[in-house]
Amino acid sequence: MSKFLNERYRKLESYTPGEQPKDTVLTKLNTNESPYPPGPKVLEAINSREAANLRLYSDPECAGLKETLAKQYGMTKNNIYVSNGSDDILNFAFMAFAGGRTEVLFPEISYGFYQVFADLYNLKYTKVPLKEDFSIDPKDYVCQNKMIVIANPNAPTGKALSLYEIEEIVRTNPENVVLIDEAYVDFGAESAVELVHKYENLLVVQTFSKSRSMAGARLGFAIASEGLIADLEKIKFSTNPYNVNRLTCAAGIAAIEENDYYRENCRKIVETRSYTAEKLVELGFKVVPSKANFLFTKCEKMDGGELYQKLREKGILIRHFDSEKISQYNRITIGTREEMDLLLGAIEEVIG
């Protein structure tokens, strides 16, 4: 840290992303990426002709991508915002919709960026404890008169609220934005997108990083009332109008157009998730029921940090968190069946 850094940011604890190893020999089950490649239309869209056009700026309106998403979700393009990954949207939302007398409310155990953004903008916030089974109690978020941010399914637990519970939270906080982060919704949870037609304060955020196999492309989108989308656009055009590049836009359109391919991948991941959970239970693990593309699990025979380290020594990466309340747990991304069998075999050796 240099002496020139603004004092406001000197105590900021930045987000720690999952390890991205340079050694490709490792079996990577730590950052919830898809084990399957993008579909053929995406690969075709990112062609040499499109690459040659990288000398030109991308469309700051992302009109083609917005129209494609709007058609997919039964919206107009004025209900769609696209950005350089969903983290950018979360960043702008904390910037735009909280501050002053507007505090923020989010789960104590959830996506780590929520607290980082709240601290970054010096916001007042409350972290709400989860229930003993790691589920979110929707009653904690009803009639709060605060900006509310909920990942559904939640991370790193994988547990999800029902659409009815989400609607109660949105309905009872009409004067504040309710942001539902649906990064993992395609793996078994109910999306709140349909509620956008009823509530002007609902902001639904999704990503191409998980179910659409494009984590490296950095593409996220939000669906909301025209007013909220206009607010996000105002922030975007005040910072970086060209925040989605030409190749990513083309890939995003192609991915939506071959949605069946990704649905089938999600089906396979859900099937493998059930298989892996069953095998882990047989090995003596406690497994939290998941609606995401990962499992949150505790080994009853070994410390969570020790299990993480021993698996890493065997070339398998999972995600361990140091937070006291979840330090005995690890989050395991669902890969292919072959990858999960490799993991299970390594676990048997480690705990045997």
Rank of each mutant, 00 (worst) to 15 (best):
T76N: 14
T76Q: 12
T76V: 09
K77I: 08
N78L: 02
N78V: 00
N78K: 14
N78R: 10
N79W: 13
N79M: 02
N79Q: 07
N79G: 01
N79I: 03
I80K: 10
I80D: 14
I80Y: 13
I80H: 10
Y81E: 09
Y81D: 05
Y81K: 15
V82P: 01
V82C: 15
V82T: 13
S83E: 11
S83L: 00
S83W: 13
S83V: 00
N84H: 08
N84S: 00
N84V: 02
N84T: 05
N84K: 08
G85T: 10
G85Q: 11
G85I: 09
G85E: 08
G85S: 06
G85N: 12
S86M: 08
D87G: 02
D87W: 08
D87V: 01
D88Q: 06
D88G: 00
D88T: 14
D88K: 11
D88L: 03
I89L: 12
I89E: 14
I89D: 08
I89C: 03
L90R: 15
L90S: 06
L90I: 15
L90N: 11
L90K: 15
L90V: 10
N91G: 00
N91F: 02
N91Q: 05
N91H: 09
N91D: 04
F92P: 00
F92T: 11
A93K: 13
A93C: 07
F94Q: 09
F94G: 00
F94Y: 10
F94E: 06
M95K: 15
M95F: 12
M95L: 14
M95G: 02
A96K: 12
A96I: 07
A96V: 05
A96E: 13
F97C: 02
F97H: 11
F97W: 15
F97S: 07
F97Q: 03
F97N: 12
F97Y: 13
A98F: 01
A98G: 01
A98E: 03
A98Q: 07
G100C: 00
G100Y: 13
G100L: 08
G100K: 12
G100N: 02
R101L: 03
R101D: 08
T102A: 02
T102S: 14
E103H: 09
E103R: 13
E103L: 06
E103C: 03
E103V: 04
V104N: 02
V104P: 01
V104F: 07
L105H: 09
L105C: 03
L105R: 15
L105Q: 10
L105D: 13
L105G: 05
L105T: 15
L105E: 05
L105I: 07
P107V: 00
P107R: 06
P107L: 04
P107E: 12
E108R: 13
E108Y: 11
E108V: 00
I109W: 15
I109E: 11
S110N: 11
Y111Q: 03
Y111N: 03
Y111P: 00
Y111C: 01
G112M: 04
G112R: 02
G112W: 07
F113N: 12
F113C: 10
F113W: 14
F113D: 15
Y114M: 01
Q115L: 10
Q115R: 08
Q115K: 07
Q115E: 12
Q115A: 06
F117E: 10
F117P: 00
A118E: 05
A118G: 12
D119R: 12
D119I: 02
D119F: 04
D119H: 11
D119K: 08
D119E: 13
